[in-house]
Design a protein around this nucleic acid. Structure first.
Lengths: 104, 104
DNA sequence: TCCATTGTTTGACAACCATCCAACTATAAG
DNA sequence: CTTATAGTTGGATGGTTGTCAAACAATGGA
């Protein structure tokens, strides 16, 4: 498995995006990726008191919904937000969600 | 029961809104309310092939999440989208969701 | 008063979900 | 080669969810 499967941008489903983001843990993870950085799985979840396997399931849900992209990098997996793809498909959506979620 | 309980605008939670809208049936219902009309429960669900009790549960979920308002009117219940409240709390969110969901 | 209409509630049920734990894979480092 | 690191996978579990069906409540009309 050299690469992880990601849905094409055109196949990203709105209800899937909303469903996946309708979980506090996953929304928090996405907020952490909002600034465009790539984060490893461990650094993305390091201040959440959640078992690593649970986080792994969340990462998969986010990836399969098309919300995040996962890049293999040695023994790490770098997560990033698929902002361009999401913006192209659902203009303004991610922005307004992140604005709403951002405590500042 | 003269009035149904609705959350205050300030108590509407983002994850609840996203979770509730992350269901195809409920999203469809909200799309139908997008133009600002009030719809009775039966007219809102008349072209969906779903049992009326199931729809009733969806209506409650939408109302309790703060997405819709339900007004008692005789033996009907009139549904409407709480667009102002949602817009005030999460600027642009409902708009971008409706735009994304709109088939045209 | 009786009946039709509108919608809710309760129960049942299968499916799904978030979580933890233990075992596993794969890569990097020594 | 051996060990440590980064994540995943599969099982188990308890809780939630979407659905239908049947019974119920409330209103309006005949």
């Amino acid at each position: 498995m050299r690469q992880l499967p990601h849905p094409d941008a055109k196949d990203i489903q709105l209800t899937e995006v909303l469903r996946v983001l309708g979980d506090p843990v996953r929304l928090e993870l996405v907020v952490k990726l909002a600034d465009g950085r790539e984060l490893s799985c461990s650094s993305a979840g390091d201040d959440l008191d959640i078992h690593k396997s649970t986080l792994s399931h969340h990462y998969r849900a986010l990836r399969e919904a098309g919300v995040t992209r996962t890049r293999l990098n040695g023994r790490e997996r770098m997560l990033s937000l698929r902002r361009d793809d999401l913006d192209a498909r659902f203009p303004g959506l991610i922005n307004s969600i992140l604005t709403a979620a951002h405590p500042a």
